[in-house]
Design a protein around this nucleic acid. Sequence first.
DNA 1: AGATACGATGCAAGCGCTTACATCGCTTTA
DNA 2: TAAAGCGATGTAAGCGCTTGCATCGTATCT
Lengths: 346, 346
Amino acid sequence: MRSSRSFPTLEDVAKAAGVSTATVSRCLNTPDRVIKPTREKVMKAVDALGYTPNFGARVMAAKRTFTIGAIIPTMENAIFARGLQAFQEELHRHGYTLLVSSTAYRPELEEEQIRALVARGADGLLLIGYDRDPALNAYLHQRAIPTLIAWAFKPEIPKPAIGFDNRAAMARLTREVLAQGHRRIGVISGIAKGNDRAAERLAGFAEALGATGLDLRDMPVIETPYGFENGENAMIRLMQTDARPTAVMCGNDVLAAGALRGARALGLAVPQDVSVTGFDDIELARIVTPPLTTVHVPHREMGTKAAIALIALVEGGDSLPPTDLGVSIKRRESLGPATPRDEQAG
Amino acid sequence: MRSSRSFPTLEDVAKAAGVSTATVSRCLNTPDRVIKPTREKVMKAVDALGYTPNFGARVMAAKRTFTIGAIIPTMENAIFARGLQAFQEELHRHGYTLLVSSTAYRPELEEEQIRALVARGADGLLLIGYDRDPALNAYLHQRAIPTLIAWAFKPEIPKPAIGFDNRAAMARLTREVLAQGHRRIGVISGIAKGNDRAAERLAGFAEALGATGLDLRDMPVIETPYGFENGENAMIRLMQTDARPTAVMCGNDVLAAGALRGARALGLAVPQDVSVTGFDDIELARIVTPPLTTVHVPHREMGTKAAIALIALVEGGDSLPPTDLGVSIKRRESLGPATPRDEQAG
DNA sequence: AGATACGATGCAAGCGCTTACATCGCTTTA
DNA sequence: TAAAGCGATGTAAGCGCTTGCATCGTATCT
């Protein structure tokens, strides 16, 4: 029976300390507005009763929760975890609490989660990427919830965002691959629908290809949900075709780690027989054998800066311009030159 | 200015729909107690205004939040992530929302987080492990917050828990290592203080050792915070002593992955020159080279069952007995027989 | 047709807290 | 010494929602 639970209230404390509820409230929130002996009396009563303020009541009266909500596609791998950890640490430093919710890469769940967080009084929201139902955007706009978009950055969209240009990053990486002489390049992409980061990465690939006179449509592309096993299976499928790619670029490091294993299962050496690249530069990228050439994303920096930006947004209301953190290409052993025997044209 | 934000309230909806607030409330909570045309009228108004109930007010009036809080040591690696994901999915299936908070392995933060979650009206709490300040336990008990302990299981402690016996598991794994002829075994443990899982694993190691007539005190043990780099450094330290261990058992897979890399840095082959074991069997264990022999923990099962158990606790109030999920040993290439030349005694 | 019952809806009392404003008593100032 | 000022504390009005109880209108029964 929940109803039998009855916690001490502000009033109980006030009674026990022989003061008014206002004084107790002040002791808790603005201690310097209360004279010391009073404060001590009150604090003693608080301890004695094991009092904890009722959050709901507080929110209702004060309109501020010092809570920030974050909704991420998944907690299952380190892609968001690391940045989020930094995000939380910075938030904590400023007296905010982070509440996290994950959608398991099911965009349709995001709305529900956003509403839950907003209803719980989140002062601000951290969201991943731009792709979102217009109705949801309208809702967010209407409620004027300070919202920051992270892990993505599109210069042309004027929303507060902090991240990097997925398309440009992938284009750069693709150029490196091309520079190694690869002309037949496979792609193992995440599901692009509902995930603008995945879509942009693919677009960046196409872009770089185009600049070299190649065409995306000639390349074998597999879309698959993120996941180690999926990367492995996709790799196997890719390498079992007649016109094998000499390099396979993956949508993220997890997929790439799977691809590496797929290659091994096929008895292919990386990078001698086939090159593999990842994206994100999570710890995993350095752990696998061979280590992955990948796009280095400054996860922790992104988390920290996102916290600062979001707090500014919440407290100041000023809408900062989108910030591009920039990325760098991390060259490691998984990418090598294309081997002649694989050139099939002509 | 936050004050300029003004959300539609129940009353606004009521006015717009031409009914009382009670009716609107009923439409939202007990739709079948409202006749259909009324309901439609109300719902239209709800949509038009973009109304979302104020959670604080609702909690205050209704005393139930359908929110479960979870506090985990870290989000940075997959150890808890996977189980937590399953936990959330199951919760969601039952109409509950999960709020996650992490302590970054700083036990002193746990109290703060617990209070934050409780204050926010969490109906129940998922906590990792038993180690906890008595005052905190008292607080939890006083407020009668349904609490479930996960990732650990000690038959002798009568609190609701779902997990596995870390000590027994580590003892089993140690026996396997001993069976391979290893007599000098190094350990890279997580920090045991404030982390009963780490402490229990160490205890299990000592226990198995004792049964073979060996003594923990003769073995090189390094305690270090969890983390890939830390595992690597610890491994290097361990292998640079005169009396090198022929096997190194690590407190978790992340540490073990680091150890593998440390071995490689030293030019040591695993398992020929030194065997390495992990714990948890996260994805990483199969990704590294060589794959890790480790303790397989049923993460997703644990998450799902934890959700079911916690909901039962919250709704029924009945305190289930602790549940031991059991673990299994996953033999993979990182563990091999002890090589004679390393035997240094006599 | 009048009495009865019942389902749909409205009314209004809180839930526990914050805070603007009022009050009180003391110190400062002329 | 009386007026003015100021800091510490108390008073009480909500904040937005749920829900027990009152009310009302219609269907049902005799």
